[in-house]
Design a protein around this nucleic acid. Structure first.
Lengths: 149, 149
DNA sequence: CGTAATGGTTGACAACAGCAACCAATATTG
DNA sequence: CAATATTGGTTGCTGTTGTCAACCATTACG
């Protein structure tokens, strides 16, 4: 094992915690929990995703996913649309309000990140980006098993 | 704003999600939730932390922290010890079993990370580590406000 | 002293996600 | 084509979890 790995693990866990449920969050997502925001973001990025595909992408069971979509619907951010091709499938298009909310949250996050990194010079920021991208690429290659229920 | 920031935000959020509650987790912490593991780790790393300090470090209210410690106690991983100096304060020393568990989980995480990164050459791994460390340092300088209740 | 402040605990509550059973729609098979 | 299997989604029920507010005990302060 490369001797840098434990250090990477420690930093990574702290960063993941910070950007996860209990870190930045609290007010950063407005009236959305992190989970709801992530689901909304998936629906935003993949206009043709079904409810299960959203759940799958976030490691939820289909019932969990259905409930998250319930909440997003109650808040007026998405609607349910049965697919005309396959009547079992529900797509989840965003409302105008939903699009507005998801983009504004993303902007807030990036603004926060910009604030955090504002004292670094461009090559250093480049280095952070490269490191994260490589890491992410390797992580994706080792996808965790999907949940099916 | 540096134009790399949005990309960093996206990668970071995906990575944080992956290493957070709904990603790797599930079985990776044995009989501990991620929250419980993080609390146990804090107690392990800071032998003199009070219950509130652990909660504070993880962004929990004091009652939330107390309940997490409850669960760790019920599982036999920590004990509550009133401080002899200030009788209000509870320290949370780990039991032998608790120490064994926390180290074994950390080992499992590092082993997983090693597996994920095994195809990268040392300079690339170095680059990831440097990027994360710089990022973490900046994040720490912008600590989120503490929760007090 | 008596009052305030601090650390911790607990009862009540609401949010949340899983399971299993269910319905509706599509696929498959004989 | 009819009968059955499979798939996507929903829902009743449940157990876990974390917050709030009220509380107790201990320490600090006037």
């Amino acid at each position: 094992m490369n001797k840098k790995i434990p250090g990477i693990y420690n930093s990574l866990q702290e960063i993941a915690w910070h950007f996860g449920n209990h870190g930045v969050n609290g007010e950063c997502c407005g009236d959305l929990s992190l989970v709801e925001f992530m689901a909304l973001k998936k629906a935003y990025e993949n206009i043709d995703f079904s409810i299960q595909e959203i759940g799958c992408a976030l490691n939820f069971t289909k019932s969990g996913a259905s409930r998250i979509i319930d909440r997003l619907m109650n808040k007026g951010y998405v609607t349910r649309e049965r697919s005309p091709i396959d009547g079992r499938i529900c797509c989840v298009p965003l409302t105008a309000k939903g699009t507005e909310v998801v983009t504004s949250i993303m902007e807030r996050y990036t603004a926060y990140l910009d604030e955090v990194l504002k004292d670094l010079d461009p090559p250093t920021i480049e280095k952070i980006k490269d490191g994260l991208d490589i890491l992410l690429k390797e992580v994706r290659r080792h996808e965790s098993p999907f949940i099916e229920n």
